[in-house]
Structures are given as C-alpha cells and as structure tokens.
C-alpha cells in the first residue's frame, strides 16, 4: 500500500489538469469541430451503406438493417453508463468539479440512446421474433439500465445544494455499474430469446464482412456523435456555471470592470 498514495495522487493530478474550466473550454472548443465533422461523416457513411448497399440477411432479409442502428446504440448505452460510473468515481474520490458537470450532461444523452436502443430492438423483435417485448435476461437488464439513467437524472437535480446531488448521483452511478456485466454476459449465463453477441473479443465475428464494415463505421460514427454532443453540452454547462457565479457574485464583475 506504500505505492498507492503516490499513484492516487498522480491519477488525481492527471485529471485535475483538465479541471480548470478555462483550459477545458479551450481544449474542447478546438476538439469540437473535428468530433462533429467526423461523427457526421462516419454516421452517414455507415448508416447509408447499411440501409442501401449492405446485403440482406439470408434468414432475416432486409430487417437485418435495423442492426446498424440498434447495435451501436446498445453499445453506447452501456459505455455511456460506464462513463457515468467513471465520473462518479472521479467525483467521490478526487472531488473533480468537471466530473460532476459531465455526469449531469451524460445522463440525459445516455438515457435517450438507451431509449432508442430499446425502441429499435422492439421494432426488430416484432417482425423477427414475433413479439415486441419479452422478459428475458438481456432485455430486462437493458430496461433496468434505462431506469438507472432516469434515476440518475432525477437524483442529480433533486437537491437544492448541487453538491449533495452530485454525491448521491455518483453513488448511484457506481452502484448501478453492477448492471453492466449483467447486460454483457446475460446472453451467455442464461438462455434468452436474444441471440448471443456476434462480435466478441475472443472469437472471430460470426458475421459476413460485407455487414461488418458498415456496422463498424456506424458504430464509430455514432460513438463520435455521442462524444460530440456530450462535449457541446459540457461546454455549455461550464459557461452557464460561470454565468451563474458572475451573476451571484457581482463584486468580481465590478473588480473586472
């Protein structure tokens, strides 16, 4: 344990480099056009390829094209919550001010993405499985994730003192992270109506490369889009908090004038 304090301190200082709002705003403003542009490019390329040029599946026919929306949103729903949990850790341990603001902004975007994932899954399930919804382990655990997002959104705004809201929401985000491995492995641990993952870290994908390419592109594009929207909201949030502090503390404004 002798090494850990220095490691903790070093990790803290690494993240605190970007705690300075001015530095964050400058970096984010420079990053924003690249993120947005690449996100648009890859998303249009991936989804256009998937919708118009990728082959139809041998058993699902054209319905397989829903995959190019469903799978990226499903992955982002989970990774967005992982980001929320990371913000919670940074907030609880290092009291990082930007992590709290980021948690406020990631929540609604993640919830929207999870809602799209559930809705497109439903739209895919009806023609293929013959049902809009079943209570199997994969679908239920993703629904739980959606409610965790909603709880986080409500909790972080529930207190008059924002610091208390940040603390409570950070605890919820970390506790809710238990759901992430359950989502990932639900299709292996239990039998489900949902099929197992086609793309795994350990094995070769069980998907034709003519479908894998557009899927990869749209995954990349939609992830970049998620990042671009979160960064834009975070920039707005940092500016709004500065506006608030300027308004509530007019002395500083007088000083500056």
């Amino acid at each position: 344990m002798t090494a850990s304090p220095s490691l903790v301190a070093r990790t803290g200082s690494l993240f605190h480099r970007y705690a300075n709002p001015g530095r964050f705003l400058r970096l984010a403003a420079r990053l924003q056009p690249w993120l947005t542009g690449l996100a648009l490019l890859f998303t249009f390329a991936g989804l256009g390829w998937g919708l118009f040029f990728a082959p139809a599946d041998w058993q699902q026919g054209d319905s397989v094209r829903i995959m190019y929306v469903h799978v990226p949103t499903a992955i982002l729903a989970s990774s967005g919550y992982a980001a929320l949990a990371l913000c919670g850790l940074l907030s609880l341990v290092w009291r990082h001010p930007l992590a709290d603001l980021a948690a406020v902004e990631i929540g609604p975007v993640g919830a929207c993405i999870t809602a799209v994932c559930l809705a497109t899954g439903s739209l895919w399930g009806k023609p293929m499985w013959g049902t809009w919804w079943v209570w199997d382990a994969r679908l239920t655990s993703v629904l739980v994730l959606f409610f965790l997002y909603l709880g986080h959104i409500a909790l972080i705004r529930a207190f008059d003192d924002p610091q208390r809201g940040y603390r409570a929401a950070a605890i919820l985000a970390l506790a809710g992270a238990v759901d992430l491995p359950i989502i990932k492995f639900s299709v292996q641990w239990w039998n489900t109506l949902h099929q197992p993952d086609s793309i795994t870290l350990t094995g070769a994908p069980t998907m034709s490369s003519s479908m894998l390419w557009p899927l990869g592109l749209s995954m990349l594009g939609i992830s970049l889009g998620f990042a671009a929207i979160v960064i834009a909201r975070l920039r707005a949030a940092v500016m709004e908090s500065r506006v608030r502090s300027l308004l509530s503390n007019p002395r500083r404004r007088g000083d500056a004038a």
């Binding site: 082959p55 041998w58 995959m67 499985w129 013959g130």
Partner: peptide, 18 residues
C-alpha cells in the same frame, strides 16, 4: 398459445447462404 422465433448470431448474405 404463442410461438416466438429465435434467430442465431450468424449474419450471412442471402447469396452466400444459397
């Protein structure tokens, strides 16, 4: 009372399957 179809995780173009 209800039959649901389960499909596997293999995605294959129609022509290849044929």
């Amino acid at each position: 009372s209800e039959v649901l179809a389960k499909h596997d995780e293999t995605y294959m173009p129609k022509e290849v399957a044929e």
